[in-house]
Amino acid sequence: MEKIYARTKGIRPDVVSGFCPGCMHSTVIKLIGEVLEEMNIIDKTVAVLGIGCCGLKMEYMSYDNITSPHGRACAVATGIKRSNPDSLVYTYQGDGDFASIGLAESVSAANRGENISVIFINNGIYGMTGGQLAPTTLLGMKASTAPKGRIAEEHGYPMHMCEILNQLTAPCYLERTSCNTPQNTLKTRKAIKKAFQNQLDGKGFSMVEVVTNCPTNWGLDPLKSLEFLNEKMLTEYPLGVIRDNG
């Protein structure tokens, strides 16, 4: 019998991920590994990890990685890529990392058209620290630092990073995907592959925003978190290609 779906070499064979049940961080990390393996570039890849749950990735993945200061992943990736252009360098960042504390680094790297790939995990909440308000938290959605939920007058509105970066001239590729169904998971896989291919082709900044879940801090079991993701998150963050100059 032929194995038609195998565990990727991009994650360690003997390790169970540290992520909560149903958390799509695990899914995306798996997809990245599958893409790197398929493209046969795993041995030249460096992952730049953001702070927060992203850090759980370092023990789970099998290849080179560096943990960046909170929010600085795009700057760290810039340093690696510019000084070592032969490496494939991608950042793996959550919404707090990419869109809040690291906003300057994210926008500036995109504006320079830095030849890196960004995998941006948007689950609308701070996961590792315990469910605080994120720049991407939905209106009305409760957070441990917004007990009455996000209020526009007080907290402003959810940030749409694909659309914000789409105001810039330099970025090559911006797509928003999800992993809420097998079909969308395969689309995410394809988007990640495209982002990496763009980098190999020297086309500059690519970002895949993956709208995901946080069952633990949303206070929902994994299957209920899928419903919330489908009904609420994807209404605020519609999926699709925002820009494709690849």
Partner: peptide
Amino acid sequence: VICPDAAIEVYK
């Protein structure tokens, strides 16, 4: 594909 934890392998 949907399994987050790469716990499933498929043969044909």
